[in-house]
């Protein structure tokens, strides 16, 4: 066999890591003889996925669109707030401590409040997803705007540019790499928010599926739920990574 080129190795590496993880997982479970209702192996989990593909699919779809809506609200609010916070040092100083304090609150603590306000179901899940994911977007957009070189601003201001001109011509394009980087983080966080809320207060979605399967000791199904969430989050992450490299390719020169 020919030795692999560096390029090929780079392509194979992530898949190899996944396969190694699966092998170790199955190996540990078998070697230690852990019962399926405590810690199912890869094969049991895969079986559960295949056997219950329909309910898993339905709940996954519920979790997916709930997450996406929460995420989109998070993007809108995060972008807006980021622009406000980042475009003036005064606002930056004023808002930053509040944002940090808010971010430190475990978002799961909001779920009971949201249930009182909106009842159980999709709405609290959307809001939890939104609450958990907008912070990195705000911080990144604000940072992107606040780190604008003063000379760059002078070049435009001396020409009579208004604040909006500076924002549109320089500030926003310049903070786009920061923005897209934050989207990758935000989408995965949004999944966390949705699932947390579904676990506590819903009768739909992967979170609910795992909760109810767990209470019946059907661990392979619980693990099937875990795998489904990670796959969805990973795919969405890749989507935004792809968008990032295509829209702000100038920031990632090779």
């Amino acid at each position: 066999m020919k030795p692999l080129s560096t390029n090929a190795k780079m392509r194979i590496a992530p898949w190899a890591a996944v396969i190694i993880l699966l092998v170790v997982w199955e190996g540990v479970v078998r070697l230690l003889g852990v019962p399926q209702y405590v810690f199912p192996g890869v094969i049991d989990t895969a079986n559960a996925l295949v056997n219950y593909y329909e309910p898993v699919g339905l709940h996954a779809w519920q979790t997916f669109w709930t997450t996406v809506i929460g995420f989109l609200i998070g993007v809108a609010v995060g972008l807006g707030l980021g622009i406000v916070v980042g475009s003036s040092p005064l606002m930056y100083r004023a808002c930053y401590p509040l944002l940090v304090a808010f971010n430190a609150i475990p978002k799961v603590a909001f779920v009971p409040i949201l249930v009182v306000w909106f009842g159980i179901g999709t709405v609290p899940a959307i809001i939890t997803a939104f609450l958990i994911c907008f912070f990195p977007i705000v911080v990144n957009v604000a940072t992107g705007l606040a780190t604008l070189e003063p000379e760059m601003e002078d070049v435009l201001r001396v020409l009579g540019a208004r604040r909006l001109d500076v924002l549109l011509k320089v500030g926003l394009p310049r903070s786009m790499p920061y923005f897209f980087a934050s989207l990758k983080v935000a989408i995965t966080l949004a999944f966390v928010g949705t699932v947390v809320s579904e676990t506590v207060a819903s009768n739909q979605g992967i979170g609910y599926l795992m909760m109810s399967a767990g209470s019946q000791m059907r661990m392979p199904l619980v693990f099937a739920g875990l795998i489904t969430i990670s796959v969805m989050a990973m795919v969405m992450y890749q989507v935004f990574a792809w968008m990032e490299s295509h829209i702000t390719g100038w920031a990632h020169r090779r």
Partner: peptide, 25 residues
């Protein structure tokens, strides 16, 4: 104005960078 640092916008081509003031003035 021009500075020690060229402060060109990295997402614009050279031509588009040169034309930037025309979008303002």
């Amino acid at each position: 104005m021009a500075f020690q640092n060229a402060t060109l916008l990295p997402w614009r081509t050279t031509l588009d960078n040169v034309m930037l003031p025309l979008e303002i003035v």
